[in-house]
Every structure is written in C-alpha cells, then in structure tokens.
C-alpha cells in the first residue's frame, strides 16, 4: 500500500526515543492520577453511602463541579490561575491534581453504585450474626461492592488514561505535545501521527483487554444467587 511505502522509517526511528519518553510521562501521570482518584473516590463514596452529615453535601457539590467541567479548563485554572493566589505548582503536579479532581468523582460514582447494590438483607443477616459496623464493612459490604464496581472502575481508568492527552495544554511534553512538535518542525505528519496512534494503542489496548477479561470473569463467576 502506498501509505506504508511512503513512510519515512528513518525519521520514525530517529524520533522513537521522543515517543518513549513522552509515553513514560503519559503513563506516570495516568498512574498517579488513577491511584489518587481511587483514594478520593473511595472516601467520597463511603461518605455518600453513609450520608455523613455536612460532608456528604460537600462531596455532592464536588462531584457536580468535577463532572460538569472539562479537564482542560480545570488544568488551566490550576496551572495559570492558582499561581496568582501564591499557589505555584509544577505542571506535573497540576496534571496529577487535575486528573484526580476529575477522576475522583467518576470513581466515587462507580464505587457508590457498587455499595448501593448490596441488598439490605445482606446487611441485616450480618447484623443478626452480631457483626459491628466496621467488621460488616470489611467482610461483607466492601468485598461484594468492589467486585460489582470493577467494570465501572476499569472504564474510568481507561477514560482517565485518555484524558491525560490534554496535559499538553499546560506544556507537558506528553505524546500529543511531541507529535505536535514534530509536525510543526518537520512536516512528517503521517509518521508522527502513526507513532502517536501506536503509542496510545500500546498503552490502552492491554488495559482495555484486561478490563474486559476481568469483567467477563466476574460476570460468569458472579455471586448472583
């Protein structure tokens, strides 16, 4: 095919290291962003589930703010706006904080729907066995809720990895940034874009395949009574 023959492989080989570095940055930001999102999401989902007074209203406001604004706008505010308040953060920190601000609410909603899917009768039978709140949480509610949340949590992870592509907007040298750079500098558009797509496939395909395997396994081994 013409397209493949015309590719400048020498160019691609020369700039491969750029992509490797950029991919590392993308993965690093995604990794920390997802990890913190899970932590924030877990705390928020428990607060929402138990309707902790005051806090659950704050969490509700946070979730609405986070879900109804684009990450790019959140990042611009963090990176360009906050320094005017004397809060200066590195671009990486902004990216991770921004991703956590966004992802926390998505994780919270997935985890909460898992918690809420636990039937009341499960809780009552645990109570009738004399279990206290903490033990019940640890042994009965969480293990079941997490299993139910897995598909949602996986989908959020993929979503967050994809969302990292906007960090080029605050001048982080991620995959998008490098691609744009190469296109601007050398006009080797096809090569740059091809490497971009391949890089994202290499990052995202395994996660996506793993997610669907996990989801299928959970469905078949499902606890369904």
């Amino acid at each position: 095919m013409g397209f493949w023959n015309q590719l400048n492989t020498e160019f691609m080989a020369r700039y491969l290291p750029w992509y490797v570095d950029a991919a590392k940055l993308t993965v690093t930001i995604a990794f920390w962003g997802i990890l913190f999102s899970l932590a924030v999401g877990l705390v928020c989902s428990v607060i929402r589930y138990y309707r902790v007074p005051v806090l659950h209203r704050i969490v509700a406001v946070y979730i609405e703010l986070s879900r109804n604004t684009p990450l790019l706008v959140q990042l611009f505010f963090l990176y360009f706006g906050l320094p005017k308040l004397g809060i200066v953060l590195s671009a990486e920190s902004c990216a991770i904080i921004g991703l956590t601000f966004l992802g926390g609410s998505y994780m919270a909603e997935s985890l909460r729907s898992g918690l809420e899917s636990i039937e009341k009768s499960q809780i009552e039978s645990a109570q009738s066995l004399g279990m206290g709140q903490m033990l019940m949480m640890k042994e009965v509610i969480f293990p079941q809720a997490l299993a139910i949340s897995v598909p949602g949590v996986c989908a959020n992870m993929i979503f967050l990895i994809k969302e990292t592509s906007v960090v080029s907007g605050i001048a982080l040298a991620d995959l998008m940034y490098v691609t744009k750079d190469l296109i601007g500098l050398y006009y080797e558009t096809d090569e740059a874009l091809l490497m971009l797509v391949i890089a994202y496939l290499i990052i995202l395909l395994p996660v996506s395949i793993l997610a669907s395997i996990l989801e299928r396994r959970l469905r078949y081994a499902g606890f369904g009574n």
Binding site: V166, V197, Y200
Partner: peptide
C-alpha cells in the same frame, strides 16, 4: 473509543 478524542482531532486536522 480507545483513542483519546484529541488524537482523533489531530488525525483529522493534521493528517
């Protein structure tokens, strides 16, 4: 679905 929307945008605009 697997591609970030920004990548699609780049492909359409530059590619």
């Amino acid at each position: 679905r697997i591609m970030p929307q920004l990548v699609l945008l780049f492909i359409a605009y530059f590619g």
